[in-house]
Design a binder for these strands. Sequence first.
DNA 1: ACAGGATTCCTAGCGGTGCTAGCATGTGAG
DNA 2: CTCACATGCTAGCACCGCTAGGAATCCTGT
Lengths: 196, 196
Amino acid sequence: MATGTRRERERAQREEMIVRTARELAEAEGWDAVTTRRLAAEIEYSQPVLYSHFTGKAAIMTAVATQGFEELAQLLRTARSAARDAGGVRAALAAVARAYTDFAQERPALYDAMFTHAVELRFADPEGPDVLRAGFGELLQAVEPLAGGDDPGVLTETFWAGLHGLATLERSGRLPGSLHDRRLELLVGRFAPADG
Amino acid sequence: MATGTRRERERAQREEMIVRTARELAEAEGWDAVTTRRLAAEIEYSQPVLYSHFTGKAAIMTAVATQGFEELAQLLRTARSAARDAGGVRAALAAVARAYTDFAQERPALYDAMFTHAVELRFADPEGPDVLRAGFGELLQAVEPLAGGDDPGVLTETFWAGLHGLATLERSGRLPGSLHDRRLELLVGRFAPADG
DNA sequence: ACAGGATTCCTAGCGGTGCTAGCATGTGAG
DNA sequence: CTCACATGCTAGCACCGCTAGGAATCCTGT
């Protein structure tokens, strides 16, 4: 029994190493470089070991994406609370918007795993994992004071779409990144008309 | 010489068939189903024939994407001119926004080729193909009257990002499609505040 | 009309992918 | 100490994008 817990612990550590290695590899060389063979070599085990932890490569990417959602939510919370103390509702919205696009730009592989791959995560489902809704909740709290007569949830979704569009179009080179700040300012301005 | 032109014509027809087949296959079963073997079988030639027309699969996807840009530009032009005659600048913006997201929803494979794959097309380059700027030009003309003191180009980019974000997040299931109309209305409302 | 050269197109294969069957090896219980 | 079980390996499957090399076909110059 005592040895049983040790093996469980070692197994959990190995699983954590798989996810961490996949993430590091993706952030360093992109998801195309994350192959099951390469990943197995990095953790110094054979390929089939991966499949004793995850159902497949997609599940590994989902695990990485889940980490991303946790970190993004944390970043948004920090940004919003800091700006709320310093400025008004507009500053809070600008702060979360900035934090969001910074996250997307600085961790592109993580953002890809969260929002362009790994569709198996259920988003709109109220029964879905909390981690998926935490980040949205931060956006919601920043948008809500500015909703006026509009539905805060739907308005937040729309604002989020704006951020996501900026992040993806700039990342892929469809929009030149040099004007990012101005676009962000315009987007925030359209959702938070006046004050500070 | 006469036979030479015939062979050129036949070759052009075959190239067109490759692009058309790739597009049909992608629209029917997604881009994952478009393999070079499958594509070669559909056009009843061997695999290497594809490489005598295109440098690789990515080039074929780029050709499909180019068709998509032409069609999207045409749709936006039609929508804008129709709405401009009937309503005001707000109606024109709403019309192009509707046309854009309809296109993305009805031709997801085409939209993917244009905006999530095929990065070899140069977007921000002023020397780039006209077809890439035609669609943006339609958006620009719809946004421009509403710019106020803001830069119309940057504002259009921001509005485009909103449309792109809605299209991609709804398509991947990150946002439930049932609320699409309300989101679109909110987005348009934030860029075209009042009048009709 | 016909030989020769260029062009066209196919078969076969390379190195890679995600994934899995089947067999050793090592572990813990009776 | 034996034996069943769990663990992790080797080897391989079917598929991917892509290409080398040879056969067949077509056009041209004499």
